[in-house]
Design a protein around this nucleic acid. Sequence first.
DNA 1: ACCTGAACACCGTTCAAGT
DNA 2: ACCTGAACACCGTTCAAGT
Lengths: 213, 213
Amino acid sequence: MYAVKAMPRPRSLTPARLADAALAVLDRDGLAGLTMRAVGAQLGTSTMGLYRYVADRDELEALVVERVLERVDTRPPGDVPWPDGIRDLADRVRRAVGVHPAVVPLLPAYRHRSPTILRWGEAVLAVLTRAGFTGVGRVIAFRALLGHVVGAIQMEHLGALSGPGTAVIAALSRDEFPLLAETAREAGAVAPEDEFGGGLDLLLDGLARRLDS
Amino acid sequence: MYAVKAMPRPRSLTPARLADAALAVLDRDGLAGLTMRAVGAQLGTSTMGLYRYVADRDELEALVVERVLERVDTRPPGDVPWPDGIRDLADRVRRAVGVHPAVVPLLPAYRHRSPTILRWGEAVLAVLTRAGFTGVGRVIAFRALLGHVVGAIQMEHLGALSGPGTAVIAALSRDEFPLLAETAREAGAVAPEDEFGGGLDLLLDGLARRLDS
DNA sequence: ACCTGAACACCGTTCAAGT
DNA sequence: ACCTGAACACCGTTCAAGT
């Protein structure tokens, strides 16, 4: 019995509950509204209570990012041609982020620390390797795909074709920016997923050519 | 003479001087160190003096971003094959940002407001148009190129091949992430400009195939 | 062991006052 | 007209105190 002198009071929070609360605040009030005080209030606990679960605000943001990325299925794609496998994997990330667009500004800085993205990267590399890529060619292919996913997701949410930025450009003086104005108007007809997929297909075609030669 | 009753005191600052001071602070102390107080101190004026030139901190950041992008040559590339023209234009942005890497985290949000990037986009579209791209195909091509430049620059500066992130990955357990660990080790041999150019070439090859068919 | 609230050292920004 | 400094309403985080 002597080991049970004082029952330690159970923790009232879990990292998952904390991450959910922070994500709720982020979705509701945006990145500027994501403060330690706001998350504490969301949970009904004191602000300082959070520091029992995270070392600082940085760690809380990492928790939120991982909470969103967790939803990405990182299992190998089905038995399909390798370009379809890559398309599938890329789209899983795009869809998961689309559920919580407010997390987009955080992705570049926290991407590296995400266990989910590591597993996802391993799955992408498995597809590339089975397709026949090796060595430096595989490095370039992997980084190009990662760059496209990162870049295109940001384009979609911070510079959306249908967003205000494009409207501003479409209204630009035709004298100074004739092609930009024209392209912005044509862009209205392109759905976000077609833009994402279309760009990815360009990359995949380029990669296919590398395998032929 | 009655129009010259009271000579207005000349302004002591210019937007350019302000932007240079802010850029100096950013380069020295990073984004977290870029505060209104720090920029005021850098200029030897009061903090509040800055508000005569910018409406708020947001506008100061926009000024810094534009100061860096200003250096990008937006004139049409020489009379070269179109893929070389695109390569040239893309590399101009990469090199300008490389001089002030601390500005990278600001790029996604402020890109749209930059007059330089608008002119640069017009130049990219001119090359694409002369190459034969039109309509939706041109929209996709343009956005894919923009996405690659944005994504690859961020990969280079926030997730550099030679950076600590890759070292961490290279040290990962070979059991859990065998391909990631192997690729990270191979990545050490790839220079940043080769990674950027290699990815861009994949995209350009994909684009060339669109013109053939 | 776990949680709390006051306090501290910062921010951006408002505003009344100086020259 | 231009510039300044005190003050206000926020932050993240330290720390001593409560249960």
